[in-house]
Amino acid sequence: MTILETNSLSIWYGEKQAINNVSVKIAKHKVMAIIGPSGCGKSTLLRTFNRMNDFVPDMRVQGEVLFQGKDIFSRKIDPVEIRRRIGMVFQRPNPFPKSVRANIVWGPKVNGYTGDMNELVESSLKRAALWDEVKDRLDDSALNLSGGQQQRLCIARAIAMQPEIILMDEPCSALDPRATSRIEDLIGELRSSYTIVIVTHNMQQAARVSNELLFFYDGELIESGETKKIFTNPAKARTQDYITGRFG
């Protein structure tokens, strides 16, 4: 079942076109990886899905982005509502300069969550595989955690909003290999409950964590399909060149 799709989507930053006529379908409860060389538009596409691009001055969108069948760029849609339902994890861990607990609680609180906060903190941290490491220091500063723990806290923070989709923008690029592999394991566990779209630079990572793959080059979608199939038998020469490391 498709949860998110784009139809002939093009995006410009001023004169520069970042995304050119892209149509993709993202299936529910799958991990979709977006790969491609730097500047190919993969982060732009990701940030379009939760309308984080709105903050870029003179950004222009053409075409549609449908989330559960509704165009998220329609006038009737409140972008804040979209961001509540589509969470995001950023390239560099960016916990709030507050306690571990406050990091989890802030999003639900500003959105009027009235349930049991302690329970929410515990369940979110457990799902992000961080609970055992931080349960005794929930009131310590989140900035005292290691980089990998901070990134898992950011994932827990996104989970606490009970989103339908989690967008991850190169979530491991600032982490060491051990922390990276923990996050990759976590992504594997999360896909049963969430749809995950992950942008990555790392092809092995895309191969390890994703079910499906989008390969972008210069703002265009070159190839899409099952990860296994693309890695073993790419249809396009350019995809073949990229995944074998001939450029990028």
Partner: peptide
């Protein structure tokens, strides 16, 4: 920090 807050639907 702003991005993190906006991405949580604030």
């Amino acid at each position: 920090l702003r991005e993190a807050a906006f991405a949580l639907g604030a």
